[in-house]
Design a protein around this nucleic acid. Sequence first.
DNA 1: AATCATCGTCGAAGCGCTTCGACAACACGC
DNA 2: GCGTGTTGTCGAAGCGCTTCGACGATGATT
Lengths: 271, 271
Amino acid sequence: MATMQDVARHAKVSLSTVSYALSGARPVSAATKVRIDAAMAELGFRPNAMARGLASRRSSTLALIFPAMESGLGGTVTEFVASAAAAAREHGYHLVLWPFGAHQADEIRDLVRQGLADGVLLMEVRLDDPRVEALHAAGLPFTMIGRTREVEGLAYVDIDFDRTTEDAVAHLTALGHEHIGFLNHSRESHDEGYAPTIRAEEGFRTAITSRGLVPRTVLCHESPQAGRRAVAELLEADPDMTALVTMNEMATFGATVELQDRGLRIPDDFS
Amino acid sequence: MATMQDVARHAKVSLSTVSYALSGARPVSAATKVRIDAAMAELGFRPNAMARGLASRRSSTLALIFPAMESGLGGTVTEFVASAAAAAREHGYHLVLWPFGAHQADEIRDLVRQGLADGVLLMEVRLDDPRVEALHAAGLPFTMIGRTREVEGLAYVDIDFDRTTEDAVAHLTALGHEHIGFLNHSRESHDEGYAPTIRAEEGFRTAITSRGLVPRTVLCHESPQAGRRAVAELLEADPDMTALVTMNEMATFGATVELQDRGLRIPDDFS
DNA sequence: AATCATCGTCGAAGCGCTTCGACAACACGC
DNA sequence: GCGTGTTGTCGAAGCGCTTCGACGATGATT
């Protein structure tokens, strides 16, 4: 593998000039730049990531902390991961995966100190999340996908659950539905303080009660089987139910099966 | 951040002794080791990943090359990614994501030369995959999830599609089914040489024809909508069809909807 | 023509670690 | 008591790059 020294010799300039040509941190004359570019091309030079990282104290690497296999890994999570990787790439960064849940803040602290990451993306944030504290203390830049209870001074992107549930309910009431159920994520996720579960539940209740209707919600594991049972429960609680709002992708597949099983056509009899 | 030099001073030994205590590459007396461990703990020392990588020419990083968002990113792919990350972690490795498809062998070659990865995991391998050639030429150790046409000298783990399709067909014929359809991945994936699509198709045909039955297969996009249409097609081709073998997760959800829509109960009327 | 920035380039000092060669200190067999 | 190995430790030389200070060579400014 060709080093920068090789390129320098080949282009008959000093090591540092090659470095400056590459980074643009200082001006380099057009003529020398051409020679250097030619030498780099000829030798197939690629700057060594480790050496660059060590000398510059910047790794060009971002870490994506994501919940190993906790909450079912729906399609949404996967999309986040895939687009984060692609976006990092576009900006010349590497993306490393740190599969740590909310209870593994210590491991994160350790990894951060190894200096491999310039910044962190935190996924599946809990309302009170020790990982946030750890990252904050480490002084590493980070942003969250989702949010904690307190977001003072923190950067995050988030889904507006108040708005989405309100929109969903508005859509259904506009269609004439008055008995609307809500199929949420699991009880575990709720009890762990997983924000989407909690905030969507609140949003739904608000949207429903503000219309003088009765909210019927159910927490449900991320599986088709659980989805069937959950819908059965909802229909027992309110046999007149004609519409469902759902947060739980996996369970939804089971839900449709259960509905069709009961002779309810979608979308004719049930929305 | 404490360096190894700090630890050495603190423990009153030389820098190299600390290194040896850490790596075990040379013996260190029990007494000094205790002092060094104490110093490391007190200073909260973590070896710098970049420096270690530069000096040792090993990055402790593995790259996972995976298809950005090509083939729908089913749950299986996600599981692979998540468990790869966890497994890497367990072995003290980092896992970086390189979102490159079969047509981006050049970009892979570039990244490899940056020396960030000690080895590579290649996913969604095509029967003839330029990435394999690129990695081979780069001399980087790699293994594949899936396989190319020629596997001489290559390491891989793979699904036995002959066996899975045979098992599926055997299961269905044992239940008495004689009109069995096959719901495959998309035509695009087939034409691109995506091995699971091609090999599963072959496996299914073999399993069916060896029983004197007629294979009915359909290529189908990764979506519920496409799944509905595909099942409709299959039933038109053979109205007596009573069972389906499927490779296409997303399409399957649509398939069940279509079947139920036609009054076919699962599993009573249709398997 | 003298003065001063500015430009383009170079050499050298690290970044924090691994690893090689050296070398005391000591144990062993005879 | 002399070779002959072991053990445990140290110093120093890198790994391949970034970045700082220095310095001749221009070109612009009076």
